[in-house]
Design a protein around this nucleic acid. Structure first.
Length: 1028
RNA sequence: GCCGGUGUGGCGAAAUGGCAGACGCACAGGACUUAAAAUCCUGGGACCGUAAAAAGUCGUGUGGGUUCGAGUCCCACCACCGGCACCA
């Protein structure tokens, strides 16, 4: 392969233009108030100079890639897929006259660098910096139009200083349910018993007072209770909950980082362990995170994933009195209408009542007489049974507990509860099919109408009384449908089965198949309330109202979403700006460091392992750890997600040392500055159909492209932080990412996921060396639709590479190229770009008017490429350009004006070759000549000069008039089958078409001797003759 | 199990309900060449035909339906991919 002749000298062209763009800062974006450099092509294109206010700048377009974690392995071909797509769009939008922000940075904290440090003792910063350098070199070699002046790394103290700052905002805020937003913690009202009567001391004062008021014991007591209350309300709080501890990684993990009972990174076993952890109160935002999905332009599947993750469900909490006891058990249920069918209850093994019973003896010392053997779990007393079952559950991995086919297990506690609606005594069980972490960790079991409860009840011989039956109307509808032989859905089949069972077993109380759909309540009444005859939705309302009236329950909404476990026992992450102190009573409490102390740097260590007593590595740095006043630093660090939660905001103002982003930059780039006044009017004749005219700036990032692997975590966390910042007035939009697209995975040539172990990894460096960056970019896009999963095929790169070769030959003179080649072999070591000057323009390129046919070819291409770019259909846009070139290469005379506009279309996709040919065209021919002569606006104010990059050249517009055909081909069908294609004038009437079709020789045999029943004529499309 | 996505030539793919397979890869034949590479031209869904054509039939995962007309819309099913999964 390497022996084959180069299609064109990309090895000289690509570095030449990359250097040019870099030197000219071609792709810098400018913040409001920033001075535009003299002669910058952006300034010239828009007739701007000096310091420019937000209102004078063109509308913004913020196009963002998910920044990469710079791993040691370097880039693989999957990374540049999204980057190429965004780069093409960035260049396209620039050509359209928008002010494009297109930045790149590094998500550089993370485990691999730390693990390497543990092994080698090398500071993770060194590895990280080396990896960033590799990634940056590789990314830059692809010619992406990033504004590198805004580059950032999450590991940079100037960056994580603000990550810590945002953490302090979270720490110092609470969620006010009345206003439905976060507020500074100072606005928190204390419950009456904690009101600090007569002493209006503020928080900061009290903490300083520690030393001098030792005698004020009651105050201290009150203060510490107030502090505890306050701390329990913060958006960042400390919790002792059980967490996933991974021994091998030496850290706890978030729920989201545990997959199938193993760590997502490394696949090591994890166990539940109670530890003191920092949590972020993301659950307070569950409703907003869910509701606001409707305001953003994401794919349905992505929104659906987030909805499922948040997992909202409406239902009721119901209190059950425990028999012979003061205590109550509260359960959450989505089917309060089935309350009359509850025949037992289940507590999760971790339920706090279980602990109480084991400690304080709320359970009978003996099994009640007549207890079935299988209820006892093989133990002699309830105590032993509960104890043993709890141990057993704790030992099980998550995988074991949630295994699908697993048979349900459980033990009876010997205790009964009272069903509040009918006073029945129902047994309370402990079983691990009830999760401690969802709802209240306890359920009422309605075996007749819940699969799981049914399975359990059958195994242990518990009652399964029916309290819901299918609604008659629904059954009628199904009967009718099945009579008409229409297929039935799963639900309809279930309804039907339940109906059949009911008919066959009229008198049976217990059901033999659970019925879990809504229906009509039965057997559900007491002296005060009856649900009988009501449909489930109505029954729910009625029973909930009754329960509320008796203070036995209330309507509730529950979420699957848990609070975010935010601390890690690692070195290579942001340290928490938090210190720990003891109050006079000896209670440990935490306090935030002042903002002025940021950034809080991690200490330098020799050894990056956790301490021998299981403390995080930061605890090794004694001097760092212990402060002179006796307080101690927090030794946890933040998770990798922290830095990626807000990086898109830092790009807006990456060098600002006074704020995480300035108000002006934020409101301009996030699209909320002067929205009313700045409705698009800058480019009056952009030539696009109205649907394609650039919209007024959208709120937030205009387009965010990245992999599906971040569908839930990163995208949910980032939305959460953004909403907090919004509530606190630090950003001006409620959502960060207006439009989001997931690029599909690129598989190896064998159709398998690329991985080292399969040996099917394609290294972009190799492709670049052989075919060049432009061919690589083109191929990544030509592969198929952006969102699809698709296999790589290096042969396919050759195809687009050949296309670029044809483009090259369309423009250059072959004889001069031979000269260039010879010069290149003799003057090898120079290999200089000066040699490119030897290559002359093709002599067929002339400054002549284009023929109508040529214009048609060009404008068809402009139309297709423009529309496809708007719809992110890069693959078909490329094929349109191939069609153009295949045609243009046959022209004897090639008008400069046509080729020039074609280059503008090609430039976003293959910018290097486009720039080179543009330059040749400009030096060889007047840059003023364009396709349309009567267009002073075009040539006059673009401000571009010979020698300017074509990056700011105007995107051509297509003229529909040029695409009109004089004669068109119309397919003629008889009875839906194609018989002939006839040629008619484009303006033929329906009657003309009909006559022409009927008279066609090819059609005659199919209609002769038949009656023509109907003729369908679709103007400009087709004729269909129906004849029998 | 639930949710979402995808099924079209040898391969990647394209087609506002209106000529299925644009564009590209691979392949075959030809031109150029001493030869090869590169380049250029030509061909191509399957079947049935034929010396070669033409004509004809079938064809977008499977089975139904709507329609003058379905890859496209509706219903059911199958396969593969991704996500969630005892969430009460």
């Amino acid at each position: 392969m390497s022996s084959s002749r180069r299609q064109y000298p990309f090895h000289l062209i690509e570095p030449k233009w990359q250097q040019f763009w870099d030197e000219q800062q071609t792709f810098r974006a400018f913040n409001p108030g920033e001075a535009l450099p003299d002669g910058h092509p952006f300034a010239r294109r828009h007739n701007l100079s000096g310091k420019v206010a937000a209102t004078q700048l063109p509308p913004k377009f913020y196009i963002l890639d998910m920044f990469p974690y710079p791993s040691g392995a370097g880039l693989h071909v999957g990374h540049p897929e999204g980057y190429t797509a965004t780069d093409i769009l960035a260049r396209y939008k620039r050509a359209q006259g928008l002010h494009v922000l297109h930045p790149m940075g590094w998500d550089a904290f993370g485990l691999p660098a730390e693990q390497y440090a543990v092994k080698t003792g090398q500071h993770p910063r060194n590895t990280t910096e080396a990896n960033i350098a590799t990634f940056k070199r590789q990314i830059q070699s692809l010619g992406f139009s990033y504004d590198w002046s805004r580059e950032l790394a999450t590991t940079d103290p100037d960056y994580f200083r603000w990550t810590q700052w945002i953490f302090l905002k979270l720490y110092n805020s609470w969620f006010n349910p009345e206003k439905n937003k976060a507020e500074p913690i100072e606005t928190l009202k204390y419950p009456a018993e904690l009101e600090n009567v007569g002493q209006a001391s503020s928080l900061s004062q009290t903490s300083k007072k520690n030393g001098d008021r030792q005698d004020a014991c009651p105050t201290n007591e009150l203060e510490s209770r107030r502090r505890a209350y306050r701390d329990s309300k913060r958006l960042a709080y400390v919790s002792e909950q059980p967490v996933w501890w991974c021994e091998q990684l030496g850290t706890v993990l978030a729920n989201e980082e545990v997959v199938d009972g193993k760590s997502e990174v490394g696949g090591f076993p994890v166990v539940r362990k109670p530890m003191r952890q920092w949590m972020l109160r993301i659950t307070a935002y569950a409703e907003k995170l869910l509701a606001d999905l409707d305001t953003i332009d994401w794919t349905d599947s992505l929104k659906e994933m987030q909805r499922n993750w948040i997992g909202r469900s409406e239902g009721a909490e119901v209190k059950f009195q425990i028999s012979n006891s003061e205590s109550q058990i509260t359960v959450f249920t989505t089917r309060p209408d089935t309350l009359f069918g509850a025949t037992y209850m289940v507590l999760s093994p971790e339920h706090k009542l279980v602990d109480e019973w084991l400690k304080d003896d709320g359970i009978p010392s003996e099994w009640p007489t007549g207890t079935p053997e299988e209820w006892k779990g093989g133990k002699d007393t309830p105590y032993d049974a509960i104890w043993a079952y709890g141990l057993c559950a704790a030992a099980k991995s998550d995988l074991d507990r949630t295994a699908l086919a697993k048979e349900k297990t459980g033990v009876w506690t010997g205790v009964y509860a009272i069903n509040p609606v009918n006073g029945e005594k129902i047994p309370i069980w402990i079983a691990d099919y009830v999760l401690a972490s969802y709802g209240t960790g306890a359920i009422m079991a309605v075996p007749a109408h819940d699969e799981r409860d049914f399975e359990f009840a059958k195994k242990f011989g518990l009652g399964i009384p029916r309290v819901v039956i299918p609604a008659e109307e629904e059954i009628y509808a199904i009967a009718e449908k099945s009579y008409r032989n229409q297929g039935l859905s799963q639900q309809e089949k279930q309804l039907w089965e339940a109906h059949v069972e009911l008919n066959n077993r009229q008198n049976a109380v217990d059901v033999i198949e659970p019925f879990c759909l809504p229906g009509i309540s039965c057997n559900s009444s007491n002296e005060e309330v009856s649900l009988n005859g009501l449909y489930s939705s109505d029954a729910k309302q009625k029973i909930t109202a009754w329960l509320e009236g008796k203070n036995l329950g209330k309507r509730t909404i529950n979420y699957k979403l848990r609070d975010w476990l935010f601390s890690r026992q690692r070195y290579w992450g942001e340290p928490f700006p938090i210190i720990w102190k003891r109050d006079a009573g000896g209670n440990l409490y935490h306090e935030a460091l002042p903002e002025s102390s940021l950034p809080l740097l991690p200490p330098t260590l020799e050894d990056y392992k956790p301490t021998s007593d299981g403390q995080p590595p930061l605890a090794r740095a004694k001097e760092w750890l212990n402060l002179p006043d006796g307080s101690v630093r927090e030794t946890n660090t933040m998770p990798q997600w922290a830095g990626s939660c807000w990086y898109y905001l830092r790009y807006l103002d990456a060098k600002n040392s006074n704020a995480f982003v300035s108000k002006e930059a934020e409101s301009y780039w996030m699209g909320t500055a002067g929205r009313e006044s700045r409705v698009e009017s800058r480019e009056p004749d952009s030539g696009l159909p109205s649907s394609l005219v650039p919209r007024p700036s959208t709120p937030g990032v205009d387009l965010y492209v990245g992999g599906t692997e971040h569908a839930v975590l990163h995208l949910l966390y980032a939305r959460f932080w953004h909403k907090v910042l919004f509530d606190l007035g630090h950003v001006s939009t409620p959502e960060p990412f207006f439009k989001l697209v997931n690029q599909g995975l690129i598989l190896g040539e064998d159709g398998q996921k690329m991985s080292k172990s399969r040996g099917n990894v394609v290294n972009p460096d190799d492709i670049l060396k052989e075919f060049g960056a432009d061919a690589f970019r083109l191929y990544e896009m030509f592969l198929g639709p952006l969102e699809m999963v698709k296999p790589w095929n290096t042969k396919g790169v050759e195809g687009v590479y050949r296309f670029l070769g044809r483009v090259w030959r369309l423009f250059v003179d072959e004889a001069s190229e031979t000269e260039f080649e010879q010069a290149q072999t003799t003057a090898k070591e120079q290999g200089s770009k000066q040699l490119l000057n030897l290559i002359k323009l093709n002599s067929a390129i002339k400054d002549v008017p284009a023929t109508p046919a040529q214009l048609k070819t060009l404008h068809a291409c402009i139309k297709k490429v423009t529309e496809d770019l708007e719809g992110l259909r890069f693959n078909t846009a490329i094929s349109a350009m191939m069609v153009f070139v295949n045609d243009a290469i046959t022209w004897e005379t090639k008008p400069v004006s046509v080729l020039r506009e074609f280059l503008v279309l090609l430039a976003p996709f293959a910018p290097h070759i486009a720039e080179e040919l543009w330059e040749k065209l400009s030096t060889g021919h007047s840059p003023q000549s364009t396709v349309h002569s009567p267009q002073p606006a075009r040539t006059g104010d673009s401000g571009l000069r010979t020698g300017d990059s074509l990056s700011y050249a105007r995107w051509p517009k297509f003229d529909p008039a040029l695409l009109v055909e004089s004669e068109i081909e119309i397919p003629v069908q008889v009875n839906g089958k194609l018989r002939v294609v006839i040629k008619v004038p484009a303006n033929a009437t329906q009657a003309d078409l009909e006559t022409a079709a009927k008279n066609s020789i090819e059609v005659k045999p199919f209609i002769d001797g038949k009656t023509i029943k109907k003729i369908i004529v679709v103007p400009k499309k087709l004729v269909n003759i129906v004849a029998v």
